[in-house]
Nucleic acid binder design. Structure first.
Lengths: 229, 229
DNA sequence: CGACCATTTGATATGGATCAAGCGATGTGG
DNA sequence: CCACATCGCTTGATCCATATCAAATGGTCG
């Protein structure tokens, strides 16, 4: 059982914040048009950013690196809800308390923003409020796509994941995955073995190429899209 | 392929709306505190309310009956995203166009509200904006729970569904399901046969009772919660 | 080089899908 | 009022995709 009362590392580690003072800094919070107060923080690989059940006093924007949010079921199964890449905002999937835990997938820099400041601003400024709503609606849409992934076959899930990642990192043909096979498996509701087998099978049929386990070349996007159901 | 240009029945059938005039009526849109403009409409069993890809110009509040929203994959599989019961608001899971289709599960009365009116109101009134945000966040939370359901075993999914429905209809021990086994199956990512078998098995172990196929008595909630993982 | 960890590969087991038949309620026409 | 069609649901038999268990491989760091 996860503790309901621990303080999130994002607060623990940040001098000044727990004392009620936020380091002032201008930065673009919401897709680059609203000036906002935030503090940059660093997390190393696998470090916890916040835990399920903790008060959700902050919003987070990924500067560099990758973040995973997840839940662990009673029997130990872990479901990854989302991966957040540079530019993505997370932590608004919530009411008063976090309903998921968040960890750094790789060494990560994150902008931490006091939620109450944003909410207060939104109360006065309709545009900010609209932005917050849009962000949440976008997140909702993403989770709905995730639901669709989870009813598909293993091959369709893996292909869907690759296409999603390719689009989000907007790389060319080759993508660098920041997460492990176990992370991918827990995101797709599969086992690590099935993910691995599916990737090698895709490589065998020349749809992809695997220069290394974390690098994947999309060799035939048309074929992949066809396999995406 | 679903048409991208058809007009939603909610608009087609409503005299006055397509002509730009909304019947004026006071009603409580957002959990009962904001006066809003809306028009009541009726849909009979299995009638379409709106279709995927249509412009999302309205929000909907269920007065009586039940609504399902769903997507159909290319190969014909149908995934039900949500069931909406009396009091629930749907149609805000979207940007400009509906990303899902909506149908009446049973004969249903729905309040139809012009989206632009709500958005305009939210722009001026921070409380309304906050309400919209909350509603979307709540929907997000619901979908995240749905994701968790989909990685569980068949028995856990069915039990989870029963407990969810019991809570939402806040009935006593006996719940009346408005939807068919096929609807339940498409919500849970299972087949109709597996849903049926799981229910009879739960009945055999005395966790539930099945007076008729649509009526289910939760005989042992503690046992059910234990089976919920 | 050797330990460690992530990943791949192989062999087998199993939960749920699929295919197929039976059953019970509801409705319709004779 | 009954014979019969229809539809939703249940039950049975078999199959298959993915999980599970187990071992081999490979890459990284001391």
């Amino acid at each position: 059982m996860l503790s309901q009362t621990t303080i999130s590392p994002a607060v623990r580690h940040m001098p000044g914040i727990s004392a009620g003072r936020l380091p002032l800094r201008d930065c673009h919070l919401l897709s680059g048009s609203i000036e906002m107060i935030g503090a940059p923080m660093s997390f190393c690989r696998n470090e916890e950013i916040f835990g399920e059940g903790e008060p959700a006093d902050y919003l987070y924007k990924v500067i560099s690196g990758t973040v995973r949010t997840y839940k662990v079921l009673a029997d130990g199964r872990r479901q990854i809800q989302a991966f957040y890449l540079p530019g993505d905002i997370f932590g608004l999937d919530t009411g008063d308390d976090h309903t998921v835990s968040a960890e750094a997938v790789s060494d990560t820099k994150i902008l931490v923003i006091k939620r109450s400041a944003v909410v207060a601003l939104a109360q006065r400024d309709g545009d900010v409020a609209r932005r917050l709503w849009d962000l949440t609606a976008r997140e909702l849409h993403r989770v709905q796509e995730h639901v669709l992934l989870l009813i598909k076959t293993a091959q369709e899930r893996v292909v869907g994941f690759l296409l999603e990642m390719a689009e989000r990192v907007h790389a060319g043909r080759e993508i660098e995955l920041p997460m492990s096979r176990q992370d991918i498996a827990d995101y797709l509701g599969l086992t690590i073995e099935t993910v691995s087998r599916t990737l090698t099978q895709l490589a065998t049929t020349a749809a992809i190429e695997l220069p290394s386990s974390r690098r994947i070349v999309l060799r035939n996007r048309a074929a992949l899209s066809r396999l995406n159901a």
